[in-house]
Design a protein around this nucleic acid. Structure first.
Lengths: 179, 179
DNA sequence: ACCTGAACACCGTTCAAGT
DNA sequence: ACCTGAACACCGTTCAAGT
């Protein structure tokens, strides 16, 4: 039996599909881009997508995983900065995914895979923000509350047009060390 | 020319369609309920909906207007209460519309009518919350900021499962007079 | 003015058939 | 294992035709 027959090829093709979907989902929207467009952008036929993904929602999860890991890698490579600037950086970095934010919330109610991804994302985000607020000197007993609140505010800013200064002062309200 | 030929009938039928749509959109979701189900629940044929609404998005706006006005009427009939309890009441009252919240954000990116409704909703919500925070004794220069922040937090709570106590303490964080 | 039956275009998904 | 052509089911929307 040929174990690992051509795992590289398989992953590469899967990746091409995900990359095509990422571009289209973030630019045009998830409901607005038919799988046929993803397929032609990836240079495959529509049905081929179903060899790599169970359905359209599973493809969205593939996109979500990819963009999350990319953003995390970029964040990790960054020099240390004050906590409120880190939050501001995250907000700016995630701005390009605002259409994914809305569709994840909308489809989490109907799709099991997206609901699972969404739960996992918040677990991760909460954990990271708890750590950030702890280092920023927030009181130990409302760390999780502050983290969840910050996530809601960032999501809110992502989903609503706003100017930089409004975002800045809104996030400052959440940081304990701010004046 | 028969002015007002049967305006009552027209409004009544329109209302039946909206009520049927409200039930199905809030319970099963907007994308998940075909117009055929709305139609049969309202006792009309699918195409009849198009006599009253330009398209499915316009019907959603009809539902949004209806539920908003109802919630506002209920709120107006309430006795005066401390500000944080009013926020908590609003959160509980709007909980049943959490599926509408997510879909409005998702479709505001693609649909003009929904985007307009969404903008108008936030203008109204911000104005009401500014007034509430003013009466609650918030500093005059960050009233709007606090209002927008409170709206984001309430939307965040609506879109994510949470227990009552978490919501309570999160909203308390926003109210200036809280300890 | 109001309603309907029938049709159209589109899209997610499946499946039998290929290599 | 991987890919495709063809078909299916569904759904939003339109339109000519009725009253």
């Amino acid at each position: 039996m040929p174990r690992n027959r051509r795992p590289q090829d398989r992953d590469e093709k899967r990746d091409e599909i995900v990359r095509a979907a990422e571009l289209l989902f973030t630019r045009d929207g998830f409901a607005e881009t038919p799988l046929s467009k993803v397929a032609s952008a990836a240079g495959v036929t529509t049905n081929t997508i179903y060899w790599y993904f169970a359905d359209k929602d599973a493809l969205l999860v593939g996109v979500l995983d990819r963009v999350l890991h990319e953003a995390l890698a970029e964040a990790a490579a960054l020099p240390d900065r004050p906590w409120d600037e880190q939050l501001l950086w995250a907000l700016a970095r995630l701005q390009r995914y605002h259409r994914l934010v809305t569709v994840v919330h909308a489809r989490a109610n109907s799709s099991k895979v997206i609901d699972s991804w969404h739960t996992g994302f918040h677990d991760l985000a909460d954990a990271m923000l708890v750590e950030g607020f702890r280092e920023a000197g927030a009181a130990e007993d409302d760390l999780l509350l502050r983290a969840q609140l910050a996530v809601f505010v960032i999501e809110g800013l992502l989903m609503h047009p706003h100017d930089e200064s409004a975002a800045r002062s809104m996030l400052r309200l959440l940081v304990p060390t701010a004046s």
